[in-house]
Nucleic acid binder design. Structure first.
Lengths: 242, 242
DNA sequence: GCCATGGATCCTGTATACAATGAACCTGTT
DNA sequence: AACAGGTTCATTGTATACAGGATCCATGGC
């Protein structure tokens, strides 16, 4: 609990006022960046001290994070960073294939020039970042592409669902990605997607997305383990003290 | 605010202790049953008095209801029962067709005998209730069928999404259903679904669901109005006083 | 008659105090 | 040494107090 306290405090002082929204954003980002590993305890008072607010605000933020599936909130117990199981990981990917495929299909041929340009810019940025080995930047660009799809979805309900699923898959990718191989970069997938969208070929766009997500899932290490992570989360070995 | 206060108070006294979960359930149900029309103000203190708890509990309940899309919570403003627009209604139906169709397809041929029997019992119950003109009972049975699909979804993530979509479509059905015609009963649809599920025909099951939901949507009055409902919700004409 | 302005009131945002529950630890026994 | 029991501490659940913002209505000016 000590390591990130100072950093976050510094970030906080730079900003102005803190609301539950800010806490949600910061914690979500920290989980995504794996600065808060699964199972990490998130006591309300500690979080309150870190952000300089009282428990009321923290509680609201934690409730929201729970509804976003980022943390696990159980009655009378400390909130913890969620650790989705392997099974749930597979299910999340399947759900995202379904939803994002549909969004892409709906979007094919219906993108205005401005959005199209932004999409292309992000795709170029991703390739460039990959070229210079800047993995965090590459991830940012990749995420930006998918978020653009979600935001521009003609069906806002599906768009919101997709936003949620992008977050959840990002978390499990960080959790289960194999340590060694280069990264989760799938050369050309995003470019192919853009082409299909521009041509207005709905089914092609859907297929590109499905293939892209299947490849992404295949890059993960989803072999059944001895429930080490799950036990960690359930039995609650505290690992943040000295 | 007066009409439902006594009723709910009575229900409350019958039960034992009240938690935020209970409040969420009761309010959700009241919205579903149209005892709390769209736009109704839900001040924290009033709700607290009704349920005999303090604002802390009510706040948590309202936050959850907001994340379920049942109420609208805006900064520094009273929470109100949400009134989804016609456009959102269409989008919600489209999303549900996609998700429930997939769930049904996944479920085809994978139902155990017990669940199968319960499904069949609910389908029979629905027909019977329709026969004797008991509309509320008919709705209960119909909802039970779809909830069973969601609960038994092999993909739990999709199942949870479906649960959410069933709730949201129920709300908009209550909102936009035409007053005169018999009801939203589509004879045989559920029976056809059961048949497809038993035979293990995934694509048939998906198609039955899609057709069922399209028919359901077609029964609603989704003609563009003069934004009466939306204005009502936005301008906040209070209609619960005397 | 209509719009602007002021204050009173209602309601939410936040902090804090106290109660209650659960986890950790220490002790005594076998 | 292993285990059962009880005690202590950490942490959440709930209620309440105060501050700030929004709304509503009445009054005054155009």
């Amino acid at each position: 609990m000590q390591e990130w306290q100072e950093e976050v405090l510094a970030e906080v002082r730079a900003g102005s006022r803190i609301s539950d929204r800010d806490i949600v954003d910061k914690v979500r980002r920290a989980v995504l960046m794996q600065r808060l590993p699964p199972g990490t305890r998130l006591p309300e008072v500690t979080l309150g001290e870190v952000f300089g607010v009282s428990r009321s605000v923290v509680r609201k933020a934690l409730t929201r994070l729970a509804s976003e599936h980022v943390v696990d909130q159980r009655p009378n117990q400390v909130a913890r960073v969620r650790a989705p199981s392997i099974e749930e990981t597979r299910e999340t990917f399947a759900a995202r294939r379904l939803v994002e495929g549909e969004v892409a299909a709906l979007l094919a041929g219906h993108l205005d020039a401005a959005s199209d340009a932004r999409l292309a810019a992000q795709a170029r940025g991703e390739i460039e970042a990959h070229g210079r080995g800047d993995e965090p930047a590459r991830i940012e660009h990749s995420l930006a592409i998918h978020h653009l799809l979600a935001e521009h979805s003609p069906n806002r309900v599906l768009g919101a669902m997709l936003t949620d699923l992008i977050l959840r898959t990002s978390i499990v990718i960080a959790l289960y990605k194999r340590p060694n191989p280069a990264s989760c970069f799938l050369a050309g997938d995003h470019t192919a997607l853009l082409a299909a969208l521009e041509q207005g070929d709905a089914e092609a766009a859907r297929e590109v997305i499905r293939h892209h997500l299947e490849s992404l899932e295949a890059l993960l290490d989803l072999s059944p383990r001895e429930a080490s992570i799950d036990l960690m989360a359930i039995l609650g070995r505290s690992r943040e003290q000295a």
